[in-house]
Simulated assay, not measured.
Amino acid sequence: MIRVLLADDDALVRGGLKALLRAEPGIEVVGEAANGVEAVRAALALKPDVVVMDIRMPVRDGVSATRDLMAAPDRPRVLVLTTFDLDEVVDDAITAGADGFLLKRATPEELVTAIRAVAAGDAVVSPAVARRLFASHAARVGPDHERAARLTDREADVLRAMALGLSNTEIARSLHLSVETVKTHVKHVLAKLDVRDRTQAVVWAYRTGFAYRGTATVVE
């Protein structure tokens, strides 16, 4: 059972999300929060697996709340769900440690899939946001040849697919590999890049231009 906490200042939005998720097998909404302060407090008390986090909230925003949750022991996964796809909003959320970034215009199916993927340890970025990240982060820091050289060609393919927001299952399908083989490649990528998790690996790929220089394409 995936335990979910909903953090959004709009009660109607929370109500709609709760009704949607209540109908999904294997997902349970364990709490709600109307601002960042409540979100952190509720997450620490309820220990959800995933926090669906809005960005623009009163008292405290979702970015700073996410940053606090990343420092917590046994921290939850955070899926940002927002109306705003401005470059600085995306950048701030991912830098804070968010595991996924989805726009509120996403379909119910996309949201449920994203929650399941984030809970499973995948990094999720909607295709529209991925395109913006490619454009805004390409060459921002510059190539990191030393770490990039540690990756095999197949590991590089897997990392670029991760940067597109693909799950392990989707990567396996696109690269004609087994899911277990993909998981092994992901583990090697994290170790070779010396990063904590998939999200940090994706951030590295964007900021060094590694993902942008690849041959992968975003598919709607």
Score class of each variant (00 low, 15 high):
M1A: 12
R3N: 10
R3L: 14
D8P: 01
D10F: 14
L12V: 12
V13E: 06
G15Y: 11
A19V: 10
A19E: 07
R22D: 15
G31F: 04
G36C: 08
G36P: 07
V37N: 06
E38T: 11
A42Q: 14
D54T: 02
V59W: 10
R60K: 14
D61C: 05
D68V: 13
M70C: 15
M70I: 09
P73E: 14
R75I: 08
R75F: 00
R77M: 11
L81T: 00
L81I: 07
F84E: 05
D85L: 09
L86N: 13
L86D: 14
I94F: 07
G97Y: 03
F101V: 04
L103M: 13
K104P: 04
R105V: 10
T107M: 03
V112F: 02
A114H: 04
I115T: 08
D122T: 06
V124T: 09
V125R: 11
P127W: 03
A130S: 05
R132H: 06
A135P: 05
S136L: 05
A139L: 12
V141L: 13
H145G: 14
E146K: 14
E146V: 15
A149I: 05
R150I: 07
R154F: 07
E155P: 08
A163W: 00
A163N: 02
L166D: 04
S167W: 00
I171F: 06
H176D: 15
E180A: 12
V182M: 01
H188L: 13
H188Y: 00
V189I: 15
V189K: 09
A191G: 09
K192W: 11
R198C: 08
A201V: 05
V202W: 00
A205T: 04
R207C: 03
Y212A: 12
Y212L: 08
R213S: 15
